[in-house]
């Protein structure tokens, strides 16, 4: 089971993802776990079994409390090997955030509103592994 951790303070994200990827979920290709803050995501990842299950982390940047970038730094620092893929999603498609995210080791950078067709393409390689 390839687990994808979605971190966003918007709770509707869960519903959207479940509907958008309902086929993949139904077919058992992906499993989604949703955390609504950076802290929650870390707590989740600190459980060893969870960490090994998660292959991809999709994180919003602008969140109250721990920001997406902090979360990114945290993950890359605490879990250097093997690190999960981290994709950053933000409404601010600005160069600064992009540069920062890349510097911290993000694997990809998506901007809102999410184009699920694109996301689906990006997730496709995971299925082959």
């Amino acid at each position: 089971m390839r687990k994808i951790l979605v971190v966003d303070d918007e709770t509707d994200v869960r519903l959207l993802f479940e509907q958008r990827f309902r086929r993949e979920i139904r077919d058992g290709l992906f499993a989604f776990y949703f955390a609504f803050s950076g802290e929650e995501a870390i707590t989740y990842l600190e459980q060893e079994e969870h960490y090994s299950e998660v292959v991809l982390i999709l994180s919003d940047i602008n969140m109250p409390g721990m920001s997406g970038l902090e979360l990114l730094r945290h993950i890359k620092r605490d879990h250097p090997n093997p690190p999960p893929m981290v994709m950053m999603i933000t409404a601010y498609g600005d160069a600064e955030s992009y540069a920062k995210a890349m510097e911290l080791g993000a694997n990809d950078f998506l901007s809102k509103p999410l184009d699920f067709a694109v996301l689906r393409q990006k997730l496709a390689p995971l299925n082959n592994t």
């Binding site: 958008r20 602008n62 409404a91």
Partner: peptide, 21 residues
């Protein structure tokens, strides 16, 4: 714009998902 973008994200996506559904 940024603040609107988030809800708009949902509006668009949910509408598209609604059509799919």
């Amino acid at each position: 714009a940024h603040e609107i973008q988030n809800p708009l994200n949902f509006v668009n996506n949910f509408a598209e998902v609604g059509v799919e559904l």
